[in-house]
Design a protein around this nucleic acid. Structure first.
Lengths: 158, 158
DNA sequence: ATCAAAAAGGTCAAAGAAGGTCAAACTATA
DNA sequence: TATAGTTTGACCTTCTTTGACCTTTTTGAT
């Protein structure tokens, strides 16, 4: 079995045990699995990406960590589906349609919808290169949706 | 848990207990936490900066002290001020500090704070060119803040 | 009153401890 | 054999910890 899969397995187990939120040490894991630290990043990037329903947060420096959060199961398959269906580029019109739909079906509150639209509006993204904007929009959109879906997770020591 | 966070915690508790004003002894704390005195300065500089809404005063010599004060700010004036103070480029750390402060002072709800942070996180902005990100961040940040402030907020007048 | 020692606190830079990124080399598989 | 998926390593950025050295205030001896 590939080491990548072993690591992925380990992470999944940790997530399971910790009820959807796991705080891991990259260097520890690397030591444990006798692999290079960056392989942990590889596993996370390929198996625990936002598209697959995970949020990742990390801190460097002494006492650093990588925190993975799994989208809670009770959250609509719908949003997850939408998430999967957003490619890595999306135009303003599609965004509006999707957001309106999500709002109509109660996945998003009015405020959330507004904030998302504001964040990825042409105006807000203006400093960016014009042909980059759609990609940016897709990325921000996905991250925000995910964050909202994950919301009922208390936490944050800050 | 990091010692830095322990110290920050201690200070926050002191502030809470003393109703927003705490007078501490650097050397005492250093002894208590088994750390170098300058680490206390580090914690104060990184966690209790004026940006985050704290005032710091100190005296040297015999009977010296460090006095921290939590300052409360008027919501809208503050948001407006913050808005003005954001140039057309801002780094992630400053964002975090500002948002945390706005949240602490009740200008932003927790959800709003989270959404903003998500929208302009490094991860979300990743598709963009690295030296463009700060500018983008500033733009999105301002747009979102503005949207929130301009929102007809019924019943939040206090 | 004067001055030196002691008692605080301040500053800054270097070292250490994480995590991040990227591309090149390798491997498995269609 | 192309192609996609893994593995590795060199180099980067961020956050924390420590220590050497500096400044200000108080205190006590003369």
């Amino acid at each position: 079995m590939k080491i990548t899969d072993l690591i992925a397995c380990f992470i999944r187990e940790a997530l399971e045990k910790m009820d959807g939120v796991a705080e891991l040490s990259r260097s520890e894991m690397a030591k444990q699995f006798h692999c290079s630290p960056s392989q942990i990043n590889y596993v996370i990037a390929t198996r625990f990406s936002p598209e697959r329903g995970y949020l990742v947060e990390s801190r460097r420096g002494g006492g650093g960590y990588i925190r993975l959060m799994q989208v809670s199961n009770d959250c609509d398959a719908m949003a997850t589906h939408v998430l999967g269906s957003i490619g890595n580029s999306i135009d303003p019109l599609s965004v509006r349609a999707i957001v309106a739909n999500l709002e109509a079906t109660g996945v998003l509150t009015m405020e959330q919808a507004r904030m998302i639209e504001t964040a990825i509006s042409e105006a807000a993204l203006r400093p960016s290169d014009s042909n980059e904007r759609d990609a940016l929009r897709a990325s921000i959109f996905k991250h925000m949706l995910l964050q909202i879906i994950c919301l009922p997770k208390e936490g944050k020591t800050e």
